[in-house]
Amino acid sequence: MNGWLAAAALLLIAGVGPSLWNAARGAPGRRVVAQNYATLLLCLVFLLLAQGYGRPAYVDLALVLSVLGPAGTLVFARLLLTGEEAGEGGEPPGTRRLTPVVAVGTAATVLPLCVVTGPGRATVKLLVIGALLLAGGVATTRAVRHG
């Protein structure tokens, strides 16, 4: 039984599925927040897959997504939330939970991976991905809140 792959499958089914449900319906703000959740969770899924398959090269996918995911969310926040649909009042549901979820999810995934990997360049890479995810979570939360 490969625990890493099982965790990735669980995260994919229980985390990314509901984000798709939220991204496909409702107000634009709710969709943007759901898209942000999906990119974060998928980044963690890629990290778990890399460990589960035993191929450190797969970590590059998570690295690219940790840069492009928040960038995509910022694009949506800039172009979708400032259009004519803006001004529906209040911040979208789930915005307040975004930064805590990012922090807890990243810590719960990256730290065990660091312990398994051991000291070296791969650990530094994992820590960089974690830092990028945290910074992206804070930046996108601010962008969704303030437009």
């Binding site: 991204a23 496909a24 969709r31 999906a38 998928l42 890629f46 997504l65 979708l80």
Partner: peptide, 19 residues
Amino acid sequence: ARQAVVLSLLGLGLAVLFT
């Protein structure tokens, strides 16, 4: 405009599938 959000999720899903 709303389709674009779902489309980006479709791209992410395809990336997972390929991986």
